[in-house]
């Protein structure tokens, strides 16, 4: 059971909330309170737009425990438009082939059950391709 950890991470997981460095304006995700760019303290919250692009990816066929119900799925390194890179699942790919550099946007989805179907449901960020017909959002 990892309920306390899920609870502690909910802001960054649901809303992609990280930090911005007040000294050099570097955007930080995940939050770590120290700026990796200038080394100064950085505790100011910053909500990322959720827009980014696929930097690299791989498809998981043999999923770890808890994720097997969704296999196969693709995990990508996503470069957020504000700078930071993070690892996340891709979802709702449709018939679109995944390509390096493709535009993606953050959505909040079910990640897994903590334990079995009796456990708490863990929600978090994934990324999906930006729809060609989307005007915004």
């Amino acid at each position: 059971m990892e309920i306390p950890r899920h609870w502690r991470l909910k802001k960054q997981r649901y809303g992609l909330v990280g930090e911005v460095c007040p000294h050099c304006n570097h955007k930080i995700f995940p939050p770590r309170d120290v700026c990796p760019n200038c080394g100064d303290e950085a505790k100011e919250q910053f909500a990322f737009s959720g827009k980014g692009e696929v930097y690299s990816y791989t498809t998981v066929y043999e999923a770890p425990a808890g994720f097997d119900a969704n296999a196969p799925y693709t995990v990508a390194i996503v470069k957020l438009e504000e700078g930071p890179m993070l690892t996340a699942q891709l979802t709702d790919m449709g018939e679109q082939p995944i390509q390096i550099g493709m535009s993606v946007e953050m959505v909040t989805r079910k990640m897994r059950n903590d334990g079995d179907e009796r456990g708490v449901i863990v929600y978090g960020y994934k990324f999906r391709p930006v729809a060609q017909n989307a005007i915004a959002g």
């Binding site: 119900a69 909040t108 079910k110 449901i121 994934k126």
Partner: peptide, 20 residues
């Protein structure tokens, strides 16, 4: 809905659109 969707995830997306 997809495998990773439920009323919570769908409500979050609709609410974000309403916020926009």
């Amino acid at each position: 809905p997809g495998l990773d969707e439920d009323v919570i995830t769908m409500s979050i997306e609709a609410a974000r659109n309403a916020m926009l």
